[in-house]
């Protein structure tokens, strides 16, 4: 942790993420207005009452901005957790079992890489509806495949280690080896993966919202606010620029923190970033 705090870039990243988190959690108390209420004052320019003005339905843009990261962050962090937990278990199990399970799993991972992301989400959303749990699962599975690859690779290396060999000779069960010997040793990797997956999930969710496949109105959401504000870009640029800036700073913050974390842990952050 101290190693992390000694890096100014990582510190800045943590600060950005923390700020966004605090704002998102406290939005119901600090937002001056309810994010969906129509205030009968459409398209007010920024002023003392409406700090960022109002949109064309007469909703307070500043309040919406404070609320706008909640669902996207929930989806991104939950999807990141799904991806890292599911991916690590699958990857380590494959590393432990090898053989045909491993072969089939790696084919599935390859297959996911071959299915266009948009098609994957569209199938999910059409089949199960456009709700937050569905989005978490869909985005989580997309992000999971990359984690499977990195943790499997790490697991294969660990399987060669003496203490794992010893545990195997002692007749420990597969589950014990995976949970007790392998999992703790990839915890660092998982922490970095979580940050990377969350940031890439956040970008994906805002792109999906932009395409109309993600978070749906009336939920206040940055991606939707950008899409919604585009028609008014010339007259009310703040309605687009403010949420776009929020997405970018949050993703930037997570990435800086991930980079710092992986540097501090001596891991290679960029390698996991694909997929």
């Amino acid at each position: 942790m101290t190693a992390l705090l000694r890096r100014p870039a990582a510190l800045l990243g943590l600060l950005l993420v923390a700020t966004h988190l605090v704002v998102a959690i406290s939005a119901p108390w600090i937002a001056p207005f309810a994010p969906t209420s129509l205030l009968d004052a459409p398209l007010e320019p920024p002023n003392a009452t409406y700090w960022l003005g109002t949109d064309d339905l007469g909703r307070d843009a500043f309040s919406r901005l404070l609320w706008g990261g909640r669902v996207a962050m929930l989806v991104a962090f939950a999807a990141g957790a799904v991806a890292v937990l599911g991916g690590a278990l699958l990857g380590l199990f494959a590393a432990h079992r090898r053989g045909s399970f491993d072969d089939v799993l790696m084919r599935l991972v390859e297959m996911k890489l071959a299915v266009p992301t948009i098609l994957f989400v569209a199938i999910f959303v059409t089949g199960f509806g456009q709700s937050v749990p569905v989005l978490i699962v869909a985005v989580g599975i997309i992000q999971m495949m990359g984690v499977v690859r990195t943790t499997r690779a790490a697991g294969i290396v660990l399987m060669e280690q003496g203490y794992v060999r010893a545990a195997q000779l002692n007749g420990e069960s597969g589950a014990t080896i995976i949970l007790r010997e392998l999992l703790p040793n990839v915890a660092d990797l998982m922490a970095v993966e979580f940050a990377l997956r969350a940031s890439s999930a956040l970008l994906l969710v805002s792109a999906l919202s932009f395409l109309g496949l993600g978070i749906s109105p009336p939920t206040p959401d940055w991606g939707l606010m950008v899409e919604d504000g585009m028609a008014l870009l010339e007259s009310e640029p703040a309605l687009v620029l403010a949420p776009a800036l929020c997405i970018a700073t949050l993703v930037l913050g997570i990435n800086l923190a991930a980079e710092g974390l992986s540097d501090a842990l001596g891991l290679d952050a960029a390698r996991g970033g694909g997929g």
């Binding site: 940031s199 970008l203 776009a244 970018a248 993703v251 990435n255």
Partner: peptide, 11 residues
């Protein structure tokens, strides 16, 4: 580089 891929493509 980090800023480069922190900005959504549509933006």
């Amino acid at each position: 580089a980090i800023i480069g891929y922190s900005i959504p493509e549509f933006v």
